[in-house]
Design a protein around this nucleic acid. Sequence first.
DNA 1: TAGACGTAGA
DNA 2: TCTACGTCTA
Lengths: 177, 177
Amino acid sequence: IFVKSGKHVIGDIPGVEIGDKFQYRVELILIGLHHQIQGGIAYGNFGGKVLATSIVASGGYADDLHSKDSLIYTGQGGNAKNTKGQGGNAKNTKGQGGNAKNTKGPQDQKLERGNLALKNSVQKNPVRVIRGSELLDGSRTYVYDGLYLVEKYWQERGPLGKLVFKFQMNRIGGTGK
Amino acid sequence: IFVKSGKHVIGDIPGVEIGDKFQYRVELILIGLHHQIQGGIAYGNFGGKVLATSIVASGGYADDLHSKDSLIYTGQGGNAKNTKGQGGNAKNTKGQGGNAKNTKGPQDQKLERGNLALKNSVQKNPVRVIRGSELLDGSRTYVYDGLYLVEKYWQERGPLGKLVFKFQMNRIGGTGK
DNA sequence: TAGACGTAGA
DNA sequence: TCTACGTCTA
């Protein structure tokens, strides 16, 4: 699978294999794996249709990453950040992460940008998944984890009381443990 | 010249020569040229004394970079950013650059952090200078420009009406055009 | 012009 | 925890 739209590509990047590791987000951009320096969802316009090309799941959001062949990814926007873990530990609520205006409080996520792209990709096109993790020394690593399909999506109420999008993603050709 | 303090180094970095170019700030950190991902002034603690080790002049501040063997560098803090050019064109005043709180307005710069380090380095230790420039396509390049000495420093009132620090820096062994 | 799962160091 | 001459895309 290899569909190009300007600089954006759907499917595997030639030369990049599952398990390849990177240290910085900039590297992902350089080799074409992911096209957002901070944004978790990258997308492009393919024949008038906006489709997701890759996501980065690096913790910090309430994603479910327990399985190695599937994951539940949280949409972007609405201040929905930082509510990982399902225990009642409500640590981490530092506004928007340090950047941005941070004027308005939590809001419902909207079906726009990355969220819209992922919705458009449901059961349609493969999406590259990069899993990020934080090492003991505080540094980070990004590992390419192959192609996933967005199985379905739904809205649910997040810990902040606002609606967030959830995207069920399954590895293409995976065992689906 | 090569004085080490933990991971910080005063003087030339072995293997890095004048004219060497880099694309990202992260690269500067990786090879040890500069140790701040965004900050323009890097410094370290050398035997209880905080000294500057390197600066990045990449435009955006009201630095004077007209000469190739000397420059006048603007201190950090106080919202003193973005007032380059000496014509009356007061464009560029986007708060603090996009990040940070941006609650309080312009303030006098304080003799702390990088400013203090540069002051402590006056006529004392060499400081690495990296000159950054913006290319026509909007991308940036950082070029190592060798060792400079902080000749003197002073305060003056910036375009926002607040006091800013200015550091006169001359190339070590330069012609001093 | 502004948003975004950034990064390193004090 | 916060600052900082970041850096890409839409």
